[in-house]
Computed example of a mutant assay.
Amino acid sequence: MNDMQEKTSPSPEPADPAGGPEAAGPGGEAPVKPVIPAAAAKRANASAIGMIIALVVSIAAFLPIILMNPLPKTEGYRPDIDVAAVSRNATDVAGFTPAAPETGGTFRPNYARWEAGTGSGVPTWEVGFLTPKDSFISLVQTSKANPTWLLQQTRNAPVTGSRNAGGQEWEIRDTGKGEKSLVLDYRGTTVILSGAAQLDEFATLADAVVKSMESSPAVTVSPSGAPAP
């Protein structure tokens, strides 16, 4: 009887799943975090590395082609300025024929205009030139120059010498910081060339300015039309 009781004794009751330590109850126990299998993680890393290698290979393949075929260089926008035409249009209001130097296209004008001089009281003819050496020289001409205006135009630079151009002696004013000016009083007007160009380019443009001034009548009347004193 004892043997039978031992054989038929009930086995231990299984733990209640709802009350076990592994269950996520309403008490706020931390949920089980999903784990990516090692094989899947390895495949993901291998795919990312493969994409990077493919990108590097593609760049290396196309880089020599790009280097052998550089982008074309552009000269930028070049405005078509007819200085002579603008000069003729400004003659009546200026009271003189503004200088329109002819340089054979070596000096490219990028503006030409008549300024009434409302602020300074000095009306001026203004032209900007790009030089053959990619520098810049501005031309300013007036029949109403005064010492204050002259200092403003030349940045208060002192007189450092002179330069003959077009058979005339131009006064050189140099700031010592790259900017310089050539000044000429001739045939009733004052002309100032200013910029950071080299003196040989200044001289070339100054020669053309003198020729232009000599081809036009000297100033005999004021801009208002009354006889000059």
Rank of each mutant, 00 (worst) to 15 (best):
Y77A: 11
G27V: 08
Q153W: 07
T142V: 00
Q153N: 10
Q152D: 07
S216D: 11
A61N: 09
E13Y: 09
N146P: 02
S162H: 05
R43Y: 11
G104T: 05
M51Q: 06
M4Q: 13
A61Y: 09
G188K: 05
T91A: 14
P217V: 04
A206N: 09
K42V: 05
M4R: 14
G76V: 12
N89L: 11
A18H: 07
V127F: 11
I59L: 14
V191Q: 02
K180D: 00
F107Y: 11
L63Y: 03
P101G: 09
I52M: 14
P72S: 06
D174M: 09
A99I: 06
I49M: 14
D174G: 10
N89V: 00
L193Q: 10
K7Q: 09
Q152Y: 02
S162M: 00
P70C: 01
S120L: 08
P158Q: 13
G19E: 14
P12Y: 11
S212D: 08
T97H: 13
T148N: 11
I137S: 03
S162R: 11
N110M: 00
A208E: 04
A94W: 01
A165L: 10
A145W: 01
L67E: 12
Q168L: 08
D16E: 08
P70D: 05
Q141H: 08
D3R: 12
P132R: 08
R113N: 15
A38S: 05
L150G: 05
E75L: 05
E6S: 07
W125V: 00
G25D: 13
S181V: 01
E102W: 06
Q198L: 11
T190R: 10
A46G: 03
P31G: 09
T131M: 10
S194D: 03
N69R: 07
G195D: 06
G95R: 04
G105A: 11
K211A: 15
V210W: 03
V183C: 05
F202S: 08
N156Q: 10
I66P: 01
D185Q: 13
V57S: 07
V140Y: 07
I49P: 01
P21R: 12
P26A: 14
T154F: 08
A90S: 10
A60M: 13
P70S: 04
L71Q: 03
A39C: 06
T74W: 13
E201H: 10
M4S: 11
M4C: 02
Q198G: 15
E29K: 12
A94D: 05
V159H: 06
